[in-house]
Design a protein around this nucleic acid. Sequence first.
DNA 1: AAATACCGTTGATAAATATCAATGGTGTCG
DNA 2: CGACACCATTGATATTTATCAACGGTATTT
Lengths: 222, 222
Amino acid sequence: MKQLPLFLFERCRITLRLNLAKLCLFLSGMYEVFFKKINEVIHLTADEEAIFKNYLKPKKLRKKQFILQEGDVCKYSIFVEKGLLRSYSVNEKGNDQVVQFALEGWWIADLYSFITGEPSRYNIDALEDCELLLINNDGLKEVRRQIPKFLEFSFLQMQNAYIALERRWSHMVTLSTEERYNKLLDKYPDIVQRVPQHMIASYLGLTPETLSRAKKQMTLPK
Amino acid sequence: MKQLPLFLFERCRITLRLNLAKLCLFLSGMYEVFFKKINEVIHLTADEEAIFKNYLKPKKLRKKQFILQEGDVCKYSIFVEKGLLRSYSVNEKGNDQVVQFALEGWWIADLYSFITGEPSRYNIDALEDCELLLINNDGLKEVRRQIPKFLEFSFLQMQNAYIALERRWSHMVTLSTEERYNKLLDKYPDIVQRVPQHMIASYLGLTPETLSRAKKQMTLPK
DNA sequence: AAATACCGTTGATAAATATCAATGGTGTCG
DNA sequence: CGACACCATTGATATTTATCAACGGTATTT
């Protein structure tokens, strides 16, 4: 067997060392928000965190890339370590209907498709470059089995999600356009700042024109 | 001590026997739907059902009576054995906004108030004479602790509730007035039949007049 | 650097729905 | 039995919001 020239080998070593350093940095930061969030509610030991990591799949997503497209099955529940995503459906007129945004520390998925395995009617794409953690349903079930505390966490999380959605519903029905916008601005200023206004409008159930005019009304009135 | 006349004692015995019979009948029927519903998902042993019954409080409610009023804390999660309830809020114009209906086998509460102990912004009243089972939050926690299977049940139930609400949201945003009404008619014909139309309208986010006209449109067109 | 896509704003008009008011029917209760 | 509460329907009108079209600014791509 022919021997490789030494300089090539040397280059490999250097490259390897550099990538290793990057990998360490990458891994240490990759789960930071994730476990911070969970540990706000239950306390996981280092061992338990290790179990968890077995089922988590890190993924980076560039702005405008899809992680779920209409017609596909939603195989993963997505945790946002960094960045910003949105889920939306496209109605018969071809307009986007934004369902949800997801910032750092939030989860996003089409739960119905995720649970049933039916094709999704939603799209999920990145509004900014993202770092995500993916876990599939079997993974979640396995973690809940191995770490019973996590079932408790899942229940509480789902309960909170339900309550939040119910409140959003009540605001949608009760509040005027302007009040709804202000509510969002008040509660999630980050979203309003980082998301194009026409997507905010869609999220609030308005056309871009209507939101633009409503904002104008709010500045000058009296 | 003066002795009571015998005939009085005799009358007591008869009354007692009658009431006992009624009580037995009452108790056997009282939890029927409840455990049937739960056992569709998990299986409870007789012992476990007995534990459960310790924390359940049967209650009958007459048509038009309230079980929760705006400003009160929602102390109970309510299971409907029989009858029909609705939750609603009253907006600043004094109109009712129906949030939810609950038929036999369903749960109803203001979850936010129930969990946090904050005063509720909703009313819950009976649209028909009802038989209910009430359980407070400590009771639920205790049952989840003593019967871990029930935590699993709670998680799944909450997950389903979330998915259902999400779908309702998507229908509200996507579908036309008529499609929404048909969806409800298709999915819950019982509700449409048993509830006055103006409450259906409110549930769908419409005025009674608009729903009336929409129905008319649906019969004659073409 | 030029071309292009994306975005927010504004105006004119159309459509959907709410609001106000009146009517008649039905059931309930004293 | 009659008075009253409750309810669905219909008409006329007002309000809200969507739709269509055009413009100018900014960022992105080539």
